Amino acid sequence: MARVEPVVGEPAAVADLDGERALLVADVHAGIEVGLRYERGVELDSRADERRERLCDLVVETDADRLVVLGDLAHRIGAPDGDEREELETLIRAVTDRVPMTLVEGNHDAGVAAAFAADLDVIGSEGGFLGDEPTSGVAVCHGHTWPDPALLDADVVCTGHEHPQVRLEDAVGGSRVERAWLRGELDPAAFVEDAGDERDGSDPPEDDSDPPELVVFPAFNERSGGTWVNVEGQSFLAPYLPAALPAADAYLLDGTRLGDYRQV
C-alpha cells in the first residue's frame, strides 16, 4: 500500500513511487508579496530567496527524485509578469537544475502552466496519478474543483488549496494559529460531484469498502493564510470538504497528533 509521509517540521511530504521518491508540497504562492501589494496595498519584504532555498534544501535532505507541487505554485491569477515571473523563473530553474518538477494545476496556475510548459510536467486541474499510474497508489489534485472519479482507485489522495490551520488557546486565553495536516478516510460519495449519477460518461466505483486516505496539505507559504478548521462555522474552500472527511485527525508540522480536528 502506498504511503505519504510528512517531513517532520516542514509543510512537505515524501512518497516512494515505483523506484522514484517524490517530494510533495502545496500552495507555494510564489510572488505573494507582489500580489499583496497590488491587491491590498500591503508592503512586505520579499521572501522569494527563502522559499526557493527551502524547497531546494528539502529536495536534497529527502533525497527526492522529483518535486511535485499540488497547485498554486504562483500567487496572482493569470499570466505571471514582472517580479512574480522573475521569482518563478528563478525558482523553477533552481529546482529543475536538480530534479524534474511536476505541477498539479491550481486555480492560480493557468498562466504558469502555459508560460513554463517546457520546464514542467503538468497534471490538469481534475488531478491524476503519480509514478506508474495508477499502480503507484498515490493520486493528486489541487482541490479547487471536483476531481476525476478515477482518483478513488488510489490508496492515498493528496490535495492542497485548503491551507488548513488550527487555532490553539492556552489556559489563560492566549491563542496562536498553526499550520496543520488533515488525514482521514475519504468518503467516496462526497468526493465525486453528483455521486451515483453518470459524470462524463462514467460512474464512481461501486466498491467503496476500502476507500483511500485523504491527506490535506498545509500551505508551503506561511503568508498565504488559510482555513481555521477547528473553528465552528468556518467555511471550507474545496467543494468536497468537509463532507469527504467525516472523521479526520489534525497534525502539527512537528508531528504532534491533535486528534479529531473538530474537537481541537
Rank of each mutant, 00 (worst) to 15 (best):
Y38N: 14
T102I: 12
G111E: 05
D81H: 13
R54A: 12
T90L: 14
D72G: 12
T96E: 09
A79T: 15
V122T: 13
H75F: 10
E43M: 08
V99A: 11
L70E: 08
L36Y: 13
E43G: 01
F116Q: 05
D81N: 11
L67F: 06
D45L: 14
H75I: 10
E89I: 02
E86H: 12
G111I: 00
A48G: 13
V69S: 10
C56K: 04
E43K: 09
D119P: 06
C56A: 13
R54M: 06
L103I: 05
L88I: 06
D97V: 03
L88V: 02
R66D: 02
I92R: 00
A64Y: 01
H108C: 08
E50I: 01
T90Y: 07
L88Y: 04
L55C: 08
R52H: 00
L91Y: 06
E50P: 00
V59M: 04
L44D: 03
A48K: 03
V122W: 05
D97Y: 06
D97R: 15
R37A: 15
V99C: 10
H75C: 09
I77W: 04
E53P: 00
D109C: 04
R47V: 13
E39Y: 15
R85K: 15
R54C: 05
A79Y: 14
L88D: 01
